[in-house]
């Protein structure tokens, strides 16, 4: 079975928010709800400056702290390594939001269920259905695919760029950043 992951190249990312809006529409989120949030960094002093935009979303950690602490088992890791939430089990206790060091979960206003990026998992397809953040990225900064397939685009890209999780080995994150 595949083990899905993503590479995000912040050298290319221009912080244009397209991924956030595309994701909202694909996952029918509210206008104020987002699975992707952004950190904007600026360093140096004029005129020697540099800037960086870093999109943050669920890292689908293999050792997901949110999955460990979820009392009802609403949060589970499926066989493809994608961390999902069963909206029918979630009681909205928000323990997962406390446990997640990346702050990438959000409370869905109307239901109180705590949701997050699902890698656009499609149950009918039994796989990720063309993640909209990758499909829409205008700077070609995102690569998605099966980490276990050595010649998949994402595996090749991660190896070629020595991409690393944003917080090192804090968790076994499956989004790898090139910075």
């Amino acid at each position: 079975m595949a083990r899905y992951g993503m590479m995000i190249d912040t050298r290319k990312c221009v912080g244009c928010f397209a991924c956030r809006v595309a994701c909202q529409m694909k996952n029918t989120l509210g206008p104020k709800e987002g699975f992707v949030h952004f950190e904007f960094l600026e360093s140096g002093t004029y005129p020697d400056v540099s800037s960086e935009a870093i999109p943050m979303q669920c890292m689908h950690c293999a050792d997901a702290p949110c999955e460990k602490v979820c009392p009802t088992g609403a949060t589970y890791i499926n066989e493809a390594g994608v961390v999902l939430v069963d909206a029918n089990k979630c009681i909205g206790c928000k323990y997962c939001m406390v446990a997640c060091p990346y702050s990438v979960r959000m409370i869905e206003e109307i239901s109180g269920v705590v949701e997050k990026c699902r890698f656009c998992w499609d149950d009918e397809m039994g796989g990720p259905n063309n993640p909209s953040c990758v499909a829409t990225c205008i700077a070609d900064a995102r690569v998605f695919g099966d980490l276990d397939d050595p010649n998949s685009d994402v595996a090749v890209a991660i190896a070629a760029n020595d991409a690393q999780p944003i917080a090192g080995d804090l968790t076994e994150a499956k989004i790898f950043y090139v910075r």
Partner: peptide, 12 residues
């Protein structure tokens, strides 16, 4: 083949 944020937004 790509699409910016305002394109998604303006469709709303």
């Amino acid at each position: 083949g790509r699409m910016c944020g305002r394109g998604h937004g303006f469709a709303q």
